[in-house]
Computed example of a mutant assay.
Amino acid sequence: MLPKPVSRHLLSLSKTTPGIPHTVNVTLWGRPINDAQHVVFYFGGLPASAEEPALHSVTSPHNDVYQAHNIALLYIDKPGFGETSFNYWFRLRRDWPVIVDQVATQLGVADTRRYGVMGVSNGGPYVMATLTHPILKHRVKAAANIVGVSDVVASGYFSWKSPSTAFEGIYNSLPTFITGPFTALGMALGKIYLVYLGGYQAVLGDQFPLEGRPVLAKVMQDSMKHLGIPASIDCQQGLSPLYARSSSNHDPTSVDQNATEAYQDIKVPVTLWYGTKDSSVPMASAEWLAETMPNATLHKVDSGHGLYLFHTDQLLDEFVRILDQADASDDDADSKKGD
């Protein structure tokens, strides 16, 4: 049996910046917040859905990998995905950290503890936006970026010398009312192949039970809403060179401060997990991240872009160790204040 979520929350948000959606859907996996050792926000890639964590336990010896690691995993549907309302003016670096902050406050997380963040693939820019935003940079205790895109220009991900990344950058720089329907069509065809034509186990392997097909179908469906325009905005924000950070912005209080300076200022430990067989995110981009952030550790795994689905326990074991260390440091700091 695949694990089930602990609870679901449809939260109303204050529109403190223009791109904040009216409501967001937050799904809790693993353990209840008050019973967990660690609270972790998980940012999905594309396609993306709050149902995805049901598949994370498939290759684990545990029935529920997050429950076993004493984690309360909070998944926020991106604007326009799943049950979260659509806002065309959503801008990743400006708005996403504010969304996370409001969710943490409403669920009682921000008042009691710091939390971890992790993201996969196109969730990588969401991790980096959270770590560099003035509101959250002191509220996050550790992060994991898994096969994640970072800044497409500064990291070298986008290159005119690479036909695939050049095409990707150009496509995601087009108006979203053009790319949205094509993106939705591509995911619809992918859904047909994966769910109905046998591609599910062909892509993921025989260890993934057939009961996971409805989960994958829901993941695809949640990503195709509103003619695919939210999905295109999601890609645009993370993969278009037009939306990358300005190299000339040296303002440390700006959400658009240039990537090198912003990433060098990240003080919390960040684990980077990238596959040596990944054809989507070049290892050179991961190595740039590791060299730029002062407390980053790069793990190179013999895997492809689906790394997290096949190495979940290995990754979470290491992430929990780092989260535990962060808690110990917080306890030491509190003790010294008491003295």
Rank of each mutant, 00 (worst) to 15 (best):
L216I: 12
G80M: 01
Y274M: 07
W288D: 02
I192F: 11
G124Y: 03
K137V: 06
P282I: 07
G205I: 14
G30Y: 02
A217T: 01
D334C: 09
G116D: 08
G304R: 11
Y193A: 12
L10P: 00
E291L: 08
P294L: 13
W288A: 00
N25A: 12
Y193L: 07
G275R: 04
Q264R: 15
K337L: 13
A68E: 11
L92V: 00
F319P: 05
L323E: 05
L55N: 01
A143C: 06
Q257K: 06
I20A: 04
Y200R: 03
A296S: 10
V215D: 00
G169K: 01
A142R: 07
T84Y: 09
V195G: 02
E261M: 12
V195S: 11
A166H: 04
L107A: 11
L74P: 00
S303C: 10
W288M: 03
K225S: 13
Y157H: 12
D278H: 08
Q257I: 11
V100K: 02
D206A: 15
Q314N: 11
T23L: 06
Q201H: 07
L307V: 15
T23I: 06
A72K: 02
L11Y: 08
I135D: 13
P53D: 11
F182Y: 12
N258I: 05
K4D: 14
A36S: 15
Q236K: 08
A110E: 06
P53F: 00
H22E: 15
E291H: 13
F177V: 13
Y308W: 06
D35G: 07
Y157I: 07
P18E: 09
L11Q: 11
V65P: 06
F208V: 10
P79V: 05
I192K: 14
D339K: 12
D317F: 02
I170F: 15
H69K: 15
D77F: 09
P47I: 09
A217Q: 10
K218M: 06
S14A: 14
V100D: 00
D77T: 11
L189W: 10
F208C: 08
D334I: 11
K15S: 13
G180L: 03
S164Q: 14
D324A: 12
P163H: 08
L298S: 05
D251C: 08
S164I: 13
V215I: 15
V153L: 13
P79D: 03
Y193K: 10
Q236L: 00
M220C: 12
V219N: 03
V301F: 05
T27G: 05
S121G: 11
G116H: 01
